[in-house]
Design a protein around this nucleic acid. Structure first.
Lengths: 228, 228
DNA sequence: TTGCCTATCACATGACTATGCGAGGTTTCA
DNA sequence: TGAAACCTCGCATAGTCATGTGATAGGCAA
C-alpha cells in the first residue's frame, strides 16, 4: 500500500525534487503538490465541498510559506483531516520554531538538510506511529526543554556548583558587560582604566564562575540568563 | 573499539542482566558496575584523586537510586566527565521525570521495558551522537511540550522582525549555531565535516551579514534576535 | 596575626581568531 | 555564455585569547 503524499513547498527546486523522490520511491505515491498553503487549502475546500476527501495520508509542509505559513496550514490540516500525518519541514533548527510546530499539532518535524534516505525512513516511521523526530531535532527539543525548565530539586550530598547564584563581583560584572558588547580585552582595559592583564584576571574569574571556556559561551549565558 | 559502559543500578537482578548483556555483546565492554550512585562517585573521586580517569565512555544510570538519585548523579557525572555519554533508565514514562532527566544534562533517556536489541541500538546511537530518545519517549516529550505551551505563543515567531530574513545560507546558519554553543573553529570544522578554512570563510560571511566583528557580537545578536 | 576576598599587575606561551587574498566546482538564470 | 550564488579549500599573518603561574596591597573577620 503506497503512502500518498501531499507536498506544500514554495521553493520550486526543492518541491520538484520531492515530487521526483516520491514518484520514484516504492512505498510512496505523489498525491498532490502545491506551491503555497493557500492553493492547497483551496483545493481541499473544493474537494470537501464536492463531498469528497483527498486521498492524502501524509503531508509534507514547509514552515516558511508565503501568505499562510506552514504552521497555520498545519492547523487547518489537522482540523479538517485529523487522520492525516503532517510532517513539517524547514531549513532551520530554531527551537522556537520547533515549539510552534509542535503546538500546531504536527506529527513530525524534519530539517530540509535531511538526506533523502533518512527523510524517507523518517516519514515512514512517523506515518506508522514511529519516532516523530530526527536525532538532530530531538537534540534541539531537549535543548529547548533544558533552557526553559527550572532545575529540579535533587539530593544535596554531592551538591554541584549552583550556577544560578553567581556571585560576580562588581568588577567581574563590568568586564562581562563589556564582553557582551563585543569589546576586546584591550578595549575593556581602556574602558575600565585597568591593565589588559587585570582584564584577563577578571575574565578568568568570570569564566570560572560561569563554568564556561570561551567568550561565546560567556556571552550566551549572560544574555540568556540576563546576567549582563 | 568496544564501548566501555558503567552501570549504576540498585536492582541487583536488572544490574546483573545488564552486566551480562554488555559482557556478551560485541561492541560493548563492561567498564564498571555499581549498586548506588554513592559508590560510583566514591570510585570516581578516588580515581581522580590518584590523577587517573575512568575509561568509561557510556553510563547507564537508573533514575530511582537510593540515597543520591540518578538525576543528581547524572549532574555530577556531566560535570566531572563532560565527554561521557549518560543515558538514564527508568520504568516510568512520567513526563515530569523525563523533564527532570533532561534538565540534568543526560544525553539520552530509556525505559527499562526497552527490549535488549533496541536498548543496544539506542545506546550505540546515543553514544555516537544519534537520537537521544526512543520513539516512545519522543512522543512523551512532544506531549509534554504541547500540554505546557500556551496557545498564545502561536504566531509569535512570524510576528517578530523576521530574523530569518538575514539571508544567511543554510551553511552559514549552521556555523553560527555552533559559534553560539561556544565551539571553536576547529570544533565547528569537525562537527560539520569541513575544513577549518571553510569554517573561516563561512564565518566571514556571517560577520559581514550581521555586521559584526567578533564572536561575542555575533553570539549576542544571534541570541537576542533569535537568529540561532 | 592569619586567612580570605578583591583588585591590581606581570610574564610566558600555545592555540585561536579575524582578515586579506586567491582558487575551483556546481547550479541557476538572464 | 557569463555572472552570481553557494560551498569547498588554501596560504599567510598579525593580533588576540585562554590559561598557568606568580606577586603586591588593602579591607575585613575570626
Amino acid at each position: 500500500m503506497d503512502l500518498s503524499v501531499v507536498i506544500i513547498e514554495d521553493d520550486p527546486r526543492y518541491r520538484h525534487s520531492l515530487e521526483t523522490l516520491f514518484t520514484n520511491t516504492p512505498g510512496f505515491r505523489l498525491g498532490a503538490s502545491f506551491g503555497s498553503a493557500y492553493a492547497m487549502l483551496q483545493d481541499l475546500e473544493n474537494l470537501q465541498r464536492a463531498g469528497r476527501e483527498p486521498s492524502w495520508q501524509l503531508a509534507l509542509v514547509d514552515v516558511e510559506l508565503p501568505g499562510i505559513n506552514g504552521i497555520e496550514a498545519t492547523r487547518h490540516l489537522k482540523k479538517h483531516l485529523p487522520a492525516l500525518t503532517v510532517v513539517m519541514l524547514t531549513v532551520f533548527e530554531e527551537p522556537a520554531l520547533i515549539l510552534e510546530a509542535i503546538t500546531s499539532g504536527a506529527d513530525g518535524y524534519l530539517l530540509k538538510k535531511t538526506p533523502a534516505p533518512e527523510l524517507l525512513t523518517q516519514l515512514k516511521e512517523t506515518a506508522s506511529g514511529g519516532s516523530p523526530l530526527t536525532p538532530d531535532v530531538a537534540r534541539t527539543v531537549l535543548s529547548l526543554l533544558r533552557a526553559n525548565t527550572p532545575k529540579g530539586i535533587a539530593g544535596k550530598f554531592f551538591n554541584s556548583a549552583s550556577p544560578t547564584k553567581l556571585n560576580l563581583t562588581e568588577r567581574e560584572h563590568a568586564v562581562l558587560q563589556s564582553l557582551v558588547k563585543g569589546h576586546s580585552y584591550k578595549q575593556v582595559a581602556s574602558k575600565l582604566n585597568i591593565s589588559i592583564d587585570t582584564v584577563r584576571t577578571h575574565i578568568r574569574a568570570v569564566y570560572r564562575k560561569l563554568q564556561v571556556h570561551s567568550v561565546a559561551e560567556a556571552v550566551a549565558r549572560a544574555i540568556r540568563e540576563k546576567i549582563a
